[in-house]
């Protein structure tokens, strides 16, 4: 039986977890999805790999500046926000948690690996998984690695445990349509939602997915 608990800074169990390769757009999705739900100031609950926790409060624009970057492995811990999901007269509260980027190979930096370990621990206890992939990269001519072995493994692992969807991200970019097709072909039996963390397309469907499954 898998042991519960979050030994070594796994962070709080449960909730909706965002995972994916480095630079797929996980953090931008977290922030802009919160923004889309009407959050003005982001209350981030960060758990570092060593188990320590910190809270930060940033206006969403500031959060984008600080937490999103086009260099890979910007995120080095679990960063979560509490969100209210309204629908009709009802409302569901849930926790949306961003993780460090995964890689096909072994990463040279210890703190990156620690964040990856944390992401894998969190994945074991997630109640719903949103797996972000960079559809623009997958659709580009030089697409090697954009859909990685690690993506296939995440899909196989997570989809057997909890509701699971692939977010084919960066749909605002030109090659993304081709990438989306590739992703849909690679994961024929998974739910694939085309989104753009940048301009917000697809968020409606993500909301519906979370509402239906959480």
């Amino acid at each position: 039986m898998p042991t519960a608990g979050s030994g070594g800074g796994g962070g709080r169990a449960g909730g909706c977890l965002i995972v994916g390769q480095a630079n797929a757009g996980k953090t931008l999705f977290l922030i802009n999805f919160a923004d889309h739900m009407g959050v003005k100031d982001l209350d981030l609950d960060v758990t570092w790999p060593d188990g320590s926790r910190e809270r930060f409060r940033y206006p969403v624009a500031r959060a984008r500046e600080l937490l999103v970057d086009d260099r890979p492995h910007t995120t080095r811990g679990l960063q979560a926000v509490e969100l209210q999901l309204p629908r009709g007269k009802g409302c569901k509260a849930f926790r949306l948690c961003d993780t460090g980027g995964l890689t096909d190979g072994v990463h040279g930096a210890a703190d990156v690996r620690a964040a990856q370990a944390q992401a894998l621990r969190a994945l074991r206890h997630a109640e719903l998984v949103l797996h972000v992939m960079d559809a623009a990269a997958a659709g580009s001519r030089d697409a090697a690695g954009a859909i990685g072995e690690v993506d296939r493994q995440v899909a196989a692992f997570a989809s057997l445990r909890c509701p699971y969807a692939v977010l084919a991200n960066k749909m605002d970019l030109p090659r993304a349509q081709a990438g989306l097709m590739k992703i849909a072909r690679e994961f024929p039996s998974r739910r694939v939602i085309p989104v753009s963390a940048l301009d917000g397309r697809g968020f409606r469907e993500v909301k519906a997915f979370v509402w239906d499954h959480l």
């Binding site: 898998p2 042991t3 072994v106 690996r113 620690a114 370990a117 894998l120 990685g148 690690v150 692992f157």
Partner: peptide, 24 residues
Amino acid sequence: SIEEVIGWLETGKVSPAEAFRLFA
């Protein structure tokens, strides 16, 4: 155990992709 695999990931003995395989 799974925890052992995660330990290997942390020390760089295996990649994330391999770690999932070992989970299985």
